[in-house]
Nucleic acid binder design. Structure first.
Lengths: 202, 202, 202, 202
DNA sequence: GATGAATGAGACTTCATTCAT
DNA sequence: CATGAATGAAGTCTCATTCAT
């Protein structure tokens, strides 16, 4: 039995870890509190002690775990590289994160796939929306500067390129999460990026 | 009220129609039989009369509704065009279908996004797996022939290109389903395809 | 198993009846839905089918059952008797109702004793408040007219007499509900009224 | 922080004080240990340290707090006044106590209103029963002596008068506890007693 | 062919209680 | 002395399903 503050933090982290996995694997609605508790080797009560209820656990989870992806992408966008290279780096890091970190990948699913539960979670909906808006804007600016310096093809709307990037990340994360053909797609990550980069290079 | 065989068929179709929408909007686990019944303006009993139970309804639904997309793609692949053009056509038709047909788009979600329920539905899992395998194989053959005639860039593994295509379709359908930024992405459909085509053209 | 609309109404009534008894005996918080279901020989699900949830059951119950007492008192106040006699009649009928009708007596408890739960039930609180206000006003008017015709002692504030009446009814219902010394108090009903009447007669 | 024996006693008293209030306001079943702990600005553990468990806390509380009312009434009954005056004094002191001492009034509720919990607390049930019996007997003796000396009307059974007294005290305490119209009833206390006294005076 | 009353399994949640610190 | 992490029993509620009508 755990009693110290330190133990509590361990339990909390363990719970969070288990929750990402289980929510990722089953989806929000199909996940039972007991599944998570079992995975974390505690009782359901412990979850309620730490998170209050299912929704709050999910929201907490989301907020504590989604930032890393956001940060990764943001950092890539700020590196001392040419715009095109920064875009490649961003995609590369995102894909890598999705591939390498199973836990994170499951989290990705929370982010992108389980959108359906968001109707029940207006707070989360807003949070995600804001993140997305910010990111979309940042990437679009980067694309624009790439076009300005003649590194990226001029193709009408720069937003289209941003949309393609988002489509690729969503689709990639989604397919990995679907656990079908994952290995093949994991191995294709760089190739997919190459195709994309080739498609927008001036 | 007399109920004729014709009325029954109407009810059945209405139920199917409602089911796609509701399953699409909420996901399998979060969808209640009553949601579907309400949407179809009947009571739950009618669903049981026509479909037996929730799983069977879902499976029936899936099988009756997923074929169109499959057919569309298959037909595109068989058209009298060059491989590259056939690929463009395929993507174009798929995107168009996703954009134009809300009902179908919801269905798309069933197909690609709600993968999680498949653990409960081994039969469906197999069905989807087979469809996917077949399609992946067909597209890869097409890519290969495109490479052979020098229309598509030689880039090591042709599967990478197929993977990119699948990533794009999944991602596009997924984002549309997420109901955020849909309009922007709908408007970007052709642009995204252009980027991709540019990326693989020899 | 009951299936017809008529059966449903029977079940509903049985549920209501059981609920009054059990809520009356144990209080709101200590009453389990299963207690009520058992007493009504149905399953808990049936309660939810008919009433939605515990609170709603309680509120429904209250509203459907509290009116009789109100009506009894109101009718007594309107009879073709002198004010003093109408007051005696009112007390007499109220006591009689409390004594004779166990179910109703339990209901009384809901009305007056379980006030505590009302904090959770603002709607009910208002409902009860209004009933009480109306009644208090009606009785006070009656007392005033009794004073005017010289049948009731002039004692400063007529509201004091109304307050005494309310105190007696509350106290009597309360003690009966407490199930201690009930028989003695039941037998004392008329005597208590006599003491009161003697106390206010001019 | 060093905790001395004195601090402990302070905590204990604070806990008792909070417990009366909370039990009084919500009733036994609806009161959570945490409610009491919060009101006393400690954690639940402290309650268990001092009182063992919920039932014991309640019983302790009851016994430590209910005696004052008993004593007040008992003392009034023993004063050097005529029987009628002693009865008036008794009622007066009881009402006064109920009105003036909020905490005590809440406690009153425990005593008379929350009778329902007694099934869970046989020990307390007996305790209260004995108190009530003793008191009822004492008051009846007083009434009898009042009748003997011709101060109180002969009305068949003296117990009826005792019953009226109990009815008034219960009813008054109850209505105050109900927190509706309290001010009006508080102001009417003396008037109610006057009505009663007038009703039994020879 | 369809209804809706009722069931019952199982989910979410609350909360008294224990106990290592 | 007191805390608060964790447990576990028990309660509320949901919902897929059955079945008499």
């Amino acid at each position: 039995m755990k009693r110290t503050k330190k133990d509590a933090e361990i339990t909390r982290q363990q719970l969070l870890k288990s929750a990402v996995l289980v929510f990722g694997a089953k989806g929000y609605a199909a996940t039972r509190m007991e599944d998570i508790a079992d995975a974390a080797n505690v009782t359901r009560g412990a979850i309620y002690h730490h998170f209050g209820n299912k929704k709050d656990l999910f929201v907490t989870l989301f907020k504590e775990r989604v930032d890393p992806l956001f940060d990764i992408i943001t950092e890539a966008l700020a590196e001392a590289l040419s715009p095109l290279e920064r875009i490649r780096k961003m995609l590369s890091l995102a894909f890598e994160k999705l591939v390498s970190d199973k836990e994170f990948c499951a989290n990705q699913q929370l982010d992108f796939v389980d959108i359906k539960i968001k109707n029940d979670l207006p707070e989360l909906k807003e949070y995600i929306h804001n993140r997305g808006e910010t990111l979309f804007h940042m990437v679009t600016q980067l694309v624009k500067s790439g076009i300005q310096i003649g590194e990226i093809k001029e193709t009408g709307k720069p937003e289209v390129i941003t949309a393609t990037i988002f489509t690729l990340i969503s689709g990639f994360g989604f397919i990995l999460g679907a656990q079908q053909k994952s290995p093949l797609f994991e191995a294709s990550a760089d190739g997919i990026i190459d195709v994309f980069i080739a498609g927008i290079k001036a």
